[in-house]
Amino acid sequence: MSADKVIQLAHGGGGRLTRELIEQEIVPRFGNGPLRGLPDGATLPSPGERLVFTTDSFVVQPLEFPGGNIGDLAVHGTVNDLSVCGGQPKWLSLALILEEGLSFSVLGRVLDSVRAAADACGVTVATGDTKVVARGQGDGIYVNTAGIGLALPEFTLGLERIREGDCVLVNGTLADHGMAVLAARQNMDFINGPRSDTGTVHRLVMAVREFGAAVRFMRDPTRGGAAAVLNEMVEGRELGILLKERNLPLAPATRAVAEMLGIDPLHAASEGRLILICASEVAPEILKCWRALPEGAGSVCLGTVTRDKGRVVLETVTGGRRLVDVPRGELLPRIC
């Protein structure tokens, strides 16, 4: 289809235009696997093991942002959720809710990104759905993906396995996605501005299977940022976490935007990061494995598990200490 065509309500009507949309946009990209012949549901081989199953919806604005778009984000989000549960991602569903008036060129770019991200993650888009809503009733594109993965036997993850002295690792800079999207939304025009880190963590998980017994817990710091994830890990428990501000990995552009907007980067989302808690003995080994992968090149130890009951504490650059609280409310700009 030509680039200037737009989605019409009839594209969701079930008639000729629906068929055209599916045949021209979906089938060429995803039609070779279980989607071949467009059955109502996907028939998948039973692996005879434990499965991991998750779902996530994506409503990001703007649809395209530095570093990615809603398409690769929708794949990475679900693949990462499966991965941090100790799963090997296998199949995805892809449900699109399109707004009347959406240009086919944007749709095409988003779907290309879905395909590229799925290929990179080794997952198959096995089933899907497309709906169209009237202009003003959606925001361009909403995407839902559900994912199925195989539970990796090497991992037994649980918050109750965390011990004092454990290390808190992350595979790269924090808050890049949150700051990139916020900067794009505020129309801040940067040269070398922040770029979203949207990406997959599944290879990082696969890479540390051999240390599985010493890996206590994994989580991806998305909404609410590292602060929310770390607080969840220790809330109501006998243990706490101590972070060092000097060790926080932050990209210069991300830090600059966070400073300008008065936002704590610990509160901002990442979309390609994995926070992993492990026994301190294996931490250097895991960091070494991760650093050998492009998505783990910036891996560092963020901090350690302490006996500081339920608290996440930051040792600041001045040597003071302060609480790292969970983010609250909307992210509001400064007024003076």
């Binding site: 704590d264 930051l314 600041t316 650059v317 001045t318 040597g319 003071g320 200490r321 302060r322």
Partner: peptide, 9 residues
Amino acid sequence: IGRYGIRQL
């Protein structure tokens, strides 16, 4: 002052 924990210094 809060963010950098200055009061305790």
